[in-house]
Simulated scan of single mutants.
Amino acid sequence: MTYVEMLWELTYAMESYVELPYVDLPALADEMDSPSPEAAARELRKRWGITQGPLRHLVRTMEQHGIIVALTTLAEEEVARVDAFSTTHLPRPVVILTSDRADDVYRLRFTAAHELGHLVLHHDVAAGDIEKEKEADRFAAELLAPADLIKDELSARIRLNALDEVSRRWGVSQKALIYRSRELGLVSDSSARRAYQKLEQLRTSGILQNESVRRFPGETPALLASAFELALDNGLTLEKLAARLSWHPAMVRAMLGETSSRPKLRLV
């Protein structure tokens, strides 16, 4: 995949100038003898020191543990149909999140947690395995909203105003919390169905709107851009990095997630 190869080339080049975080991604599927997705999620929270409460800044946490995360538009035909992609076939694990997730921070967080589940549990299993996708979803749900912690904040009677507060506190969508409530046996299928319908009505009417990830810096990838800023203080320039990679400087900026440095003309 061309984009992933380029991302790795950039990462490898940056590691010549800056020491990136140590890769701390345990192979729990091997260590724990085929754990359930929920057990793996709980163990990862423990090892990463997230033992109680919400997992704030998921993307930044992944980066702090050595995972390369990128948020981008993938225009290539081979990847244009996927929502996200992850691999452990490189010296550092890589997670690619597509830009269609960026308009909904909760959706992006769940997708990132889902891909983290694949990294921990599946070691690059072929895409499209339905059971593995379900396992990654279960991992993500337990990672973001552990059953033993979230159940006391959910109710047998679904009130959307109260659910909104829980949603914001835990960084999980109201829809996911309704599903979680049903999954934990707190509400019936019919109650969950009515709550889904009410949510859809609110969304259709414009009362309920998505929150862009751009309002949440901790969910926007920053590892490589931060490494580049640090390298700039130690003599690296954009031109030197571009020459090393044999890329145009604009391509380097794009891969780092930066916008063009040219001023924009505004007509008034």
Rank of each mutant, 00 (worst) to 15 (best):
R42E: 15
R180F: 02
R107K: 12
D137P: 09
E183I: 00
R215L: 03
D233Q: 10
A80C: 09
P146K: 12
S181G: 11
F110M: 11
L177E: 03
D137Q: 15
S167V: 09
G235N: 00
L256G: 00
A75T: 14
P249N: 01
R253D: 05
E31Q: 13
A113S: 11
L208V: 05
L223W: 03
A112S: 09
D152C: 11
A192F: 05
I158G: 06
V125Y: 05
A102Q: 04
E135G: 09
E153Q: 14
L238Y: 06
D33L: 13
P146I: 10
A127D: 08
L121V: 07
H248L: 07
A176T: 12
L149K: 15
K264G: 03
A84Q: 08
P146E: 12
L44E: 12
L74K: 10
D24H: 15
S190E: 09
L265S: 06
S188F: 02
E9D: 12
E43T: 14
H65I: 10
A70P: 01
S173N: 10
E135F: 08
Y196S: 05
M255L: 02
L238P: 01
E131H: 15
L97E: 01
S190K: 09
R244M: 03
R60D: 13
T73K: 15
E19Q: 14
V105N: 01
I158W: 00
R159S: 13
T11M: 00
P217D: 00
L199Y: 06
P37C: 14
Y106I: 06
N210K: 13
D33W: 12
A40K: 10
R92A: 05
P54M: 11
S99G: 01
G185P: 01
F85A: 11
A29Q: 12
Y3S: 10
G49C: 13
A112H: 02
L267E: 05
A75W: 03
L90G: 03
R169F: 08
A39K: 15
A156R: 14
S226V: 02
R107I: 02
L208G: 00
P26C: 10
L241K: 04
P146A: 13
K264E: 07
I150V: 15
Q209I: 06
H248M: 07
R194Q: 09
R45G: 09
R92E: 01
S226E: 04
S261K: 07
A127V: 09
A80N: 10
T51V: 15
D189S: 15
P221E: 04
E63Y: 11
S34I: 14
I158E: 04
M32Y: 05
R109A: 06
L28N: 06
L224F: 05
E31A: 11
L223F: 00
E229I: 04
E115H: 08
G53Q: 09
R244S: 07
E63G: 15
S173G: 14
G117N: 07
T259N: 03
L154W: 07
L108K: 03
P93Q: 08
A254E: 04
V79Q: 10
R159V: 11
R244Q: 02
E219T: 00
P146S: 14
L71S: 12
G49Q: 13
A27F: 05
L7K: 06
R45M: 09
E133V: 10
I130P: 03
P221V: 01
K151C: 10
L90T: 11
T11F: 01
